[in-house]
Computed example of a mutant assay.
Amino acid sequence: MARDEMATVRASIAGGAAVVPQHVAIIMDGNGRWAKLRGRPRLFGHRAGAKRVRDIVQACPQIGIKYLTIFAFSTENWKRTQTEVAGLMTMFKRYIMKEAQALHKAGVRVRFIGDRIRLEPALVRLMNDLETLTCGNDTVHLTIAINYGGRDEVTRAVRRMAVDVAAGRLKAEDVTAETLASFLDTHVLPDPDLVIRTSGEARISNFLLWQSAYAEYEFIDTLWPDFTPEEFARVIGRFASRDRRFGGTKA
């Protein structure tokens, strides 16, 4: 049945019957609870979650999604135990080393957003190398948010903009919403059309605050490691029924 549902969504897309979001953002929640249900440590769940990322990225071109942004590590996640944080940083490095060539071969362009200053130099080098390796790809644009927070991103953007104003490169009276957006980490990306959060939590957790002003949201109960490409396709299928007016009304 799951494969049939995936095929149905793909057929609807191909026939023009379904509206596909150009950009989907995902808050990948529930790894720790998934591991706890199995009597395993939290890092076991994070590793399972990393494998699920591969499946969802591979499903994007089949469904017709061009841009995918995933929330991997927030500015608030440093509050977790030292063991978990260290394990996550090691996992990020291993993920990049293991997946780099496969992502490149699949035509995935990878970008990272967030403040890199607090990250280990070895991890930052791997991130930079992966961005360089995949910079010419265009099948799927995968953006990974590491040490990212929406408030922090806007704060850093305003700080950079203030420097330009002080230097005379930008006039304060010329600052618009579009000007501020051009200083954000995501300035080269379209705003997300759909934000998905797994695990049953119904909050946005400081993720893409500016960019998601008019995004549609889906809060689903499935824990991230159990979020299959088939369920992903069903969520995308439901997106087509949303009435998006962006503050206006239909004629």
Score class of each variant (00 low, 15 high):
237 G>S: 11
125 R>L: 11
20 V>P: 02
123 L>C: 07
121 P>L: 06
213 A>E: 12
228 T>E: 02
160 R>A: 04
152 D>M: 05
200 G>M: 09
81 T>Q: 06
1 M>R: 02
110 V>S: 02
23 H>Q: 12
217 Y>D: 04
63 I>N: 00
148 Y>V: 11
10 R>L: 11
49 G>M: 10
78 W>P: 05
231 E>T: 08
183 F>H: 07
35 A>Q: 05
50 A>D: 02
84 E>D: 12
116 R>W: 07
64 G>D: 08
159 R>W: 00
141 H>G: 03
131 E>W: 15
230 E>F: 13
180 L>E: 01
110 V>M: 06
58 Q>F: 12
4 D>M: 13
45 G>M: 03
98 K>H: 04
38 R>D: 07
188 V>G: 01
64 G>V: 10
178 E>F: 06
202 A>E: 13
150 G>S: 12
58 Q>M: 11
50 A>N: 03
119 L>K: 00
16 G>A: 09
110 V>Q: 05
33 R>T: 12
67 Y>K: 02
107 G>N: 09
161 M>H: 03
31 N>S: 04
135 C>Q: 13
251 A>L: 15
249 T>I: 12
103 L>N: 06
127 M>I: 03
187 H>S: 10
57 V>W: 07
250 K>P: 06
225 P>Y: 09
204 I>H: 02
105 K>D: 14
201 E>T: 01
239 F>W: 08
99 E>Y: 03
194 L>Q: 04
128 N>V: 04
250 K>A: 15
187 H>I: 04
96 I>V: 15
163 V>H: 11
35 A>M: 12
169 R>M: 07
157 A>D: 00
61 P>W: 04
128 N>S: 14
233 A>I: 04
113 I>P: 02
203 R>G: 09
26 I>Y: 02
205 S>P: 03
227 F>L: 08
58 Q>H: 14
161 M>I: 00
192 P>A: 10
86 A>I: 00
32 G>T: 07
157 A>I: 05
116 R>F: 13
9 V>L: 14
75 T>P: 04
201 E>L: 12
129 D>E: 15
217 Y>V: 07
46 H>M: 03
236 I>E: 06
43 L>I: 15
24 V>A: 07
139 T>A: 11
191 D>L: 06
139 T>F: 00
102 A>P: 01
131 E>T: 06
141 H>V: 10
140 V>R: 00
192 P>N: 09
78 W>M: 08
43 L>F: 11
136 G>A: 15
144 I>H: 00
192 P>T: 05
157 A>R: 00
166 A>H: 08
125 R>V: 09
94 R>Y: 13
133 L>C: 12
152 D>Y: 00
143 T>F: 11
160 R>S: 04
159 R>P: 02
126 L>I: 01
85 V>N: 10
175 V>K: 05
98 K>R: 12
28 M>R: 02
70 I>A: 14
29 D>H: 10
142 L>C: 15
26 I>L: 13
157 A>G: 05
7 A>M: 07
176 T>S: 13
109 R>Y: 11
39 G>Y: 14
62 Q>R: 00
13 I>E: 03
81 T>I: 12
37 L>H: 10
86 A>E: 00
73 F>K: 01
40 R>L: 14
177 A>N: 08
89 M>P: 08
231 E>R: 06
